[in-house]
């Protein structure tokens, strides 16, 4: 191996961003000590939705596959974990099984979807997501139909039970950390560079010998798996799973989180997700339950005003 030239690093963590990450981690870990229980619950929801949005960003931002039906995998994970908990499995193993179920579904759906591109990809993911919701509605024996799965027992880790606000928060925070580490490890690795290369210039990457379809399928399955993992956390947090968890509105919310955060940056997706949950939980109370109206207007405004999201605001568009 010869001397490596400067400027080759993929995941150079600067001192400043490292310190920032550490500060955020400490703030998150200490949260239940300084936040009111209600705020802690909101933060728990933000973490679940943030992980879900970050998994979508792997698709939208990293490899450039805009999915309109990503909630399907959140929902499949949530239903799997909820069903397992109702049948006695409340340990973290349920999270892994939830991720596996979603990965499997993602393999099937991705195998179909990545053969297309552009608008066709949008349509296919949307259609598959909607069909998943319809299945959740009509397959009553397993999913509980439109009532969903309710009375899901609290998650357990060994002798500990995530039943009160603080313990549930730590359970979700732990899961969030694992899921984000997974996504970050891909994004920061040479594999992540290859995914970005396919996003920017598929022709060139194919000429370099990258079977782009295979990478796209990999990204699709991984994003589905992490979404399913987030779904498992969702089931533990809500103790209830309904068809709307895998519906179009949830997909749209996640996409919105990615877009207003600024696609291509995992932390930005989390920030966008936190913002949306904040708006929904705090402002949703005041708009008479017509949160989606506000959301729709925000969507329209964001498309025109912030083409690069929050992360794109500091730098000027070229």
């Amino acid at each position: 191996m010869s001397a490596v030239p400067a400027g080759l690093g993929y995941a150079r963590v600067s001192l400043r961003s490292g310190a920032l990450a550490a500060a955020i981690a400490v703030t998150l870990v200490a949260a239940p000590f300084y936040l009111a229980p209600y705020a802690t619950t909101t933060l728990t929801r933000m973490l679940v939705f943030g992980l879900f949005a970050a998994s979508l960003d792997l698709l939208v931002g990293l490899i450039g596959l805009p999915s309109l039906g990503h909630a399907a995998y959140l929902g499949i994970g949530a239903y799997t974990a909820g069903w397992l908990a109702l049948h006695g499995l409340t340990s973290p193993l349920a999270l892994l099984l939830a991720a596996s179920a979603s990965a499997l579904a993602g393999l099937g759906a991705g195998w179909i979807s990545v053969r297309s591109s552009g608008i066709f990809f949008l349509i296919l993911t949307l259609a598959i997501g909607e069909i998943a919701e319809q299945i959740a509605q009509s397959w009553t024996a397993v999913t509980g139909g439109s009532n969903g799965l309710y009375g899901i027992p609290a998650a357990t880790v060994g002798p500990l039970t995530a039943s009160d606000v603080a313990s549930l928060y730590y359970y979700v925070l732990g899961g969030f950390g694992v899921g984000m580490a997974m996504l970050w490890s891909v994004s920061a690795s040479p594999l992540g560079a290859a995914l970005r290369g396919i996003r920017d210039n598929k022709t060139r990457m194919r000429a370099l010998g990258y079977e782009s379809t295979r990478y796209e399928l990999f990204a699709f399955v991984l994003a589905a798996a992490v979404a399913g993992f987030a779904g498992g956390l969702l089931a533990a947090q809500q103790r209830l799973v309904t068809p709307s968890d895998l519906g179009f509105t949830t997909s749209a919310l996640a996409l919105f989180a990615v877009v207003i955060g600024g696609s291509g940056r995992l932390w930005a997706a989390c920030l966008g997700a936190a913002l949306i949950i904040g708006v929904r939980d705090v402002a949703g109370l005041t708009v008479n339950g017509h949160g989606p109206l506000l959301l729709g207007l925000l969507f329209i405004a964001a498309v025109y005003l912030m083409p690069h999201g929050i992360a794109g605001l500091p730098r000027r568009r070229k």
Binding site: S185, A188, S189, P190, G192, A194, G209
Partner: peptide
């Protein structure tokens, strides 16, 4: 480097 790495399996883990 992007052109090189394909000749080996694309590594995932960054560390």
């Amino acid at each position: 480097s992007l052109a090189l790495q394909r000749s080996r399996a694309t590594p995932w883990w960054p560390l």
